[in-house]
């Protein structure tokens, strides 16, 4: 392993449980015994994440540049790392990245000539929230990219969803990143051994985002009545390719608020004020055109 101060990077979409995991990490004996510096890279309400981190024997830096993104935050990040190297001289740096931080940017920063001999990335851990990952990742590219760049994947909040949903998510994550070991947990409680088994892979060529082999979303809308049999047949025919569907559907005899999660269909009374058919679907390995075509045949 090369020299330099090790950095553990935590990524994951807002709400995936990064702060909970961070607090858990800080209590692990192998980490508690080390001199730790934290970098909390905020995007959400300022200071909230920082305040949630349990008090302890560590030095904390917050990057609160919520207004600006990507390239603009790099200056602050470099400055913070320089300060840490100069003033704190820790044994370990843990970076809790914002949910919209592109992990390859952070990797590049450490790889830059100014920092590459001072720091090294030890592990890039990405949290995926079992309850909402597929929903968010269909819209937020960074959520997928964080998974693709991870050295280890922690599937959190597994207690909140059926086992079958966790298995589906594991399959999706494995396809996005076949090399990263996976761990299913609740409340971010990862064992120290998981951390120890991770090695940071410097990717010469990152996995390209293949448009067809990923999460696709489509919004559908129509004024025509929806053929009920055809609609449910479309859901059945897509099978595992349809991860989620949500929205209003006007059948010939009724209007329903339909939700489909991994094949489980629920119908509810439509919320007041909603009318007409308008729903969104998220597919896995089904191109957007096919998703649209499958449902457009229903009216």
């Amino acid at each position: 392993m090369s020299g330099g101060i090790p950095i553990v990077l935590l990524t994951g979409y807002l709400g995936a449980g990064k702060t909970t995991l961070l607090n858990h990490l800080l209590r692990l004996p192998g980490i508690r015994s080390r001199k730790v510096a934290l970098i909390i890279n905020e995007f959400g309400p300022l200071g909230i994440d920082g305040k949630l981190v349990a008090p302890g024997d560590y030095t904390k830096f917050e990057l609160n540049k919520g207004s600006l993104f990507c390239i603009c935050i790099k200056t602050d990040f470099i400055r913070t790392l320089e300060t840490i190297a100069r003033e704190v001289k820790p044994d370990l740096v843990i970076v809790e990245a914002t949910g919209v931080a592109d992990p390859c940017d952070l990797g590049q920063l450490v790889d830059s000539p100014h920092l590459k001999d001072v720091f090294r990335i030890d592990a890039n851990i990405c949290l995926a929230d079992a309850t909402g990952f597929t929903q968010v990742a269909a819209f937020l590219r960074t959520a997928k990219r964080q998974v693709m760049w991870a050295d280890g994947l922690v599937i959190n909040k597994c207690d909140l969803v059926p086992v079958a949903d966790v298995e589906t998510l594991k399959g999706i994550l494995r396809e996005l990143n076949p090399d990263a070991p996976q761990l299913t947990v609740s409340h971010g409680r990862i064992p120290e051994s998981f951390l120890a088994q991770l090695t940071h892979r410097v990717r010469l060529a990152p996995i390209p985002e293949a448009p067809l082999a990923e999460l696709a979303s489509a919004s559908l809308q129509t004024e025509c009545p929806v053929n009920e049999a055809a609609f449910f047949a479309a859901i059945a025919s897509l099978g595992g390719g349809l991860l989620r569907l949500k929205g209003m559907v006007c059948f010939s005899d009724r209007s329903s608020f339909v939700e489909v999660v991994n094949g489980r269909v629920t119908e509810k009374e439509p919320p007041a004020g909603l009318s007409g058919t308008a729903f969104t679907v998220i597919g896995w390995k089904v191109p957007k055109d096919e998703l649209v075509a499958a449902f457009s045949r229903c009216w």
Binding site: G132, Q135, F139, L140, K246, G247, A278
Partner: peptide, 14 residues
């Protein structure tokens, strides 16, 4: 709205 917007793109695109 904050990053909730990405959730709402599916939950409530309208």
């Amino acid at each position: 709205l904050g990053t909730d917007i990405f959730m709402k793109m599916f939950d409530d695109p309208d």
